[in-house]
Amino acid sequence: MQTLQLLISGVAQGMIYALVAFGYNITFATSKTLNFSLGNFLMLGGVVGFILYMTHNWPFFAALAAVVLVGMVGGAVLLKVAVEPSLNQRSAYGWILATLAVGIVLRNAAEVFWSTDDFKFRSPLGDSPWRFFGEPQPDGSMSGGLGVYPQEVLIIFVSLAIVAAVELFKRRTVFGKAVVAVSEDKDTASLMGIDQKFVILFSFMLSTAIATVGGVLVAPITLVSATMGTVLGVKAYSASIIGGLESGFGVVVGGLFLGVSESLTARFVSTGYKDVPGFVVLVLLLLFKPSGLFGRAAIRKV
């Protein structure tokens, strides 16, 4: 029963990784660049959500809508400020550093203008666990058995829904196919009349919006702080690499693997080492499959 509970929280954690990992993949598909500040955009979502929902008592969905808006604007700004300059200069690593820089600025700004403390974020579904298979108590509640936080269930379903919706969008709609076309071959896509600049802009806005939503989703579980996105961003990045940057649903596999290995290691080995097994597997995996589980290996052309 306890293992099942660990699995559920591992899955919930993993789905957050998968969701943010999906954000990495979206920009990689269209522009072959990754937004290394995505973890800090997640933090931005958590913080903005906290300020609106908890501090100013906005209705949850109004706060969420505002968070999505912030994410989209942030993505557009990031693209213009950090990624486009280095794409124009054809610099090999400029965008890595530039997006890292934006992440540093975001985090430091949150610390300076908001707070350096941790805050509790109330789940819209309530913070008491749903209990299954427990002993009924005299006052009508349950104790023992399997306790599942409603937020965990929400994370799993919302994350899956977002990933599935975007994948469906890519496969079924004309604009989605334009996105795929740009990811396959930018120049040919341009010749077919697709505005690749717009597609790239769209992908960055979508990616950061997803990350900020991830921040609101994960906040009730992890607490809100200026540093909440740093490690999470790296884990999500790992999940995306494990699945393969060019795969769609591969991120879910990568995310689940990291989330579950983390919660099991924390319980059965040590909390301090909870990240290590996932990381070690990542390095070993890349030794044998250099482009991830579901990535495509490139043929060297000269």
Partner: peptide
């Protein structure tokens, strides 16, 4: 503000 300065400087 140190890190903000760093980040902006790098950009």
């Amino acid at each position: 503000y140190r890190l903000m300065v760093y980040g902006s400087l790098l950009l």
